[in-house]
Every structure is written in structure tokens, then in C-alpha cells.
Design a protein around this nucleic acid. Sequence first.
DNA 1: CTCGTATGGTATAATGGGTA
DNA 2: TACCCATTATACCATACGAG
Length: 221
Amino acid sequence: MPRKPVTLSMVGGKGPRQRIWESIRRLSAAADAGDFTEREIWGAAEGRDQLEMTAIVDYRRCLIAAGVLVQTSQPVKQSPGRYRLARDEGLEAPRLRRNGERVTQGLAQEQMWRTLRMLSGDTNARELAAHASTPAIPVAESAAGAYLRMLDLAGYLDITAECVRDPQRRSQQARYRLRADRNTGPRPPMVCRVGAVFDPNENAVVWQQQTVTEEDCIYGN
DNA sequence: CTCGTATGGTATAATGGGTA
DNA sequence: TACCCATTATACCATACGAG
């Protein structure tokens, strides 16, 4: 089966790569073993019955290409290849392509979410885009507006000023502030294509589109 | 043959930006 | 504001290969 929606592939609020990464760090931290096999990675992974070996092979490929993981012994005869963590990059699984390049997708939302959590006052789409932008990852105002709208729908925000549309003058963008009780954690709530907002901090779908879909009928949701 | 692995390909969800 | 589209990310597949 190809890639599943995040709401399905998440186990304990974590995607497969995140769980593989944590498993690798656990194995590296263990006193006895400096290196490990792919099978050991699988064995130490959280929710491993929902983790394919191919996912581990794939991610290991990326990590090797990026130099985060190094191979300590070639797979010869019956003994599988062994690997060692060369560079521990912290709690979050490094997001990588197969050639070892860093993934930039999704960083915009991450930066916006971080900015929202840091801001003490309220903000609007334009200001959020400006604050969240970095030289490497610019955040478009339209992206900021869309993200704010979805967060608002999902109940994360207080509206501090309604948007004003005055044909005579410049219209004013709505202003929002992150609700203190919805500051759920470091990982940005994800806006999913299927019409849902998933919070990886809470491991929960926090908002779902109200329209009844075909799937609702099939699966009886 | 089987088993484990390596490698390139593919399908599909998510993203970001445009535009009606 | 709501769609649409191209691009990107990534889970899974097909195939190949070497060693029992």
C-alpha cells in the first residue's frame, strides 16, 4: 500500500521515520552496543508491528547518504550489515531525501507555528509571514493566511480583530492570537488534504470537515 | 531454491503558490 | 476565500544479486 494519510500512519503521534529514528537513538545509547543491524532497529522500535522493514531500509539509505549513519560492517555471508550513529541530531528525526539532501517541505508551517508560540501579542497573515520567514525558507503571506484560517477552524486561535472589507479603503486582515490552552507542543498541527487538522503533539485529529463523504458511509463514521 | 539486502521506480499525500 | 496545479516527500514494490 502506498503512502497513507498521516492520521492513519501515525502511531503514538509519530510517523514511521520518527519511530525508526528513536529506535536508532535508543540502540546507540545502550551501554553495550555501538552498532546495530536493521533488524535490531525494527526490534527496538515503538509500534513495530505497524512498521515495515522496507521503511527502515529506505530511511537507513537516507541517513547513510546524509552521513548521519555510517556502515560499520558490510553484509557478508549470513551476517547482516551493521550500522552506527555518527551524528545524533536530537529528538526530531532528520528529514531527508534518498540522496541525503535535507527536506525543506513543511518547514514553513513549522516556522509559523513556532512564531505563533513565541508571539506574546496578536498577529495577522502579513505579520506572521514576515516574522516566520527566514532567508532559507520564506513564508508566503497566502500560506500564512491559509494556516491561520485552518488553525482558527480547529480552535487554536482567538480572533482579536475581525477582518474588515471596505471597498473604499484598504481592507484589514483578521488578527489572531494563539490560545494559551491550545499551545499543545513544539510540533506544528498538520493541515491534511482530506479536510482535517491533525495535532502530532496530542496525537489527535483536532478538526474534521463536516461534510459527509463516501468514506463516512463506507466506514460508518 | 531461500534469505537478506541493494537499488531504482512508482503511486499518492502534502505542500506551496497561483488565480478565479 | 476556495479551488487548482506543479512539485516534493515518502511508503511500498519489483527486480537483481550473492551466499548458503
